[in-house]
Design a protein around this nucleic acid. Sequence first.
DNA 1: GAGCAAGGAAACAGATCTGTTTCCCGATGC
DNA 2: GCATCGGGAAACAGATCTGTTTCCTTGCTC
Lengths: 196, 196
Amino acid sequence: MTRTSDLPAASRRDHLIQTAGRLFARDGFHATGIDKIILEAGVSKKTLYSHFRSKEELILAVLRVHDSAFRNHFMHDVEKNGRDARDRLAGLFDAAENWFEEPGFYGCIFINAVGEYAQASPPIRSACQDFKNMMRAFILKLCREAGASEPEALADELALLFEGATVTAQVSGSSHAARTAKRAALALIGEHFSRA
Amino acid sequence: MTRTSDLPAASRRDHLIQTAGRLFARDGFHATGIDKIILEAGVSKKTLYSHFRSKEELILAVLRVHDSAFRNHFMHDVEKNGRDARDRLAGLFDAAENWFEEPGFYGCIFINAVGEYAQASPPIRSACQDFKNMMRAFILKLCREAGASEPEALADELALLFEGATVTAQVSGSSHAARTAKRAALALIGEHFSRA
DNA sequence: GAGCAAGGAAACAGATCTGTTTCCCGATGC
DNA sequence: GCATCGGGAAACAGATCTGTTTCCTTGCTC
């Protein structure tokens, strides 16, 4: 008996999602076959299809987990650091830098998913839009807490910088874009407070 | 005899690249099979493989054409509009808005290509990095012409805004991000000149 | 120990993938 | 008229894709 089969079903499900997510992020969705996932996860095809009705459902589960992980880790990191709300706003980009430097960083999996499934799978596309809306809402909340003069406008601008830094880090393979984004963000934040 | 076969070989090659590019952008690279491309282009598989040794070579040709098109159309649009160099800098984002509103806009094909081939195909990855470097060089040239106090820093920041707007437009399906990016760009540009 | 349920291994089905090859038609040059 | 050649249609090869099914082993419960 293998070690993985000792785990309870819920853990096995999580393990599959984690393995699939890593392969999807690294190699892409279409390029990652079911066979590769089960080989890497050490489970049988039967087990995978007992947890997920289709590959699309597995992808959606992966996206949901990434969504939660962002809520639980990234947002938490941002909120626990920084003395005041304005520091936390700029801290977005410190957290981004840490994210870019993680070994398994291959860009934003939601952006990659949109590239492969925007037309083919409306549910996947929706999941990606929902994630981006959540990010924007989080940044907006920070802007409000910081007392920005036009929180919506500032949030949109910072969200663009965040997206741009993520994509640039992915393509270039360097986390340097995070520092550039932070510098630009500080300038934009300054503008939104000097008017007050 | 079909109409396409009346065209000279060079035209047929271009036609294939254009058709493939449209399908790659809309549906993704792995999801677009050779059969779909030749059906849409109205040529036989033999013809396709007489022009391109493999699908990867076709993808690289598509990326090269997009690279050229950006040079010839996008850059030209930016440079012909705007009275002075500073206007042209902001005009980047007007051109972006026009781009986002084109019917066939499905995001930056280079970003999508990186998502699918970053690990699998170093040549494709390089082509995408080259494109981003060209964009950055173009923005830097505009910054220098405008007389920015720190042209490199400003170029990096504007490039991030440009990437972020492109991705946001792709995911949201709206060109609104271009206006947000322009607003942020004007603020950043202002900072880089007030110091002078 | 008997029955039961979970899950691994692998065959299988049917579709699709990239890339090659064969055959044939039609246009063009001489 | 005839030879040549480009190219379309389609078969083909071999691999891979998603998803199903079968068989068998193993551990648990009673």
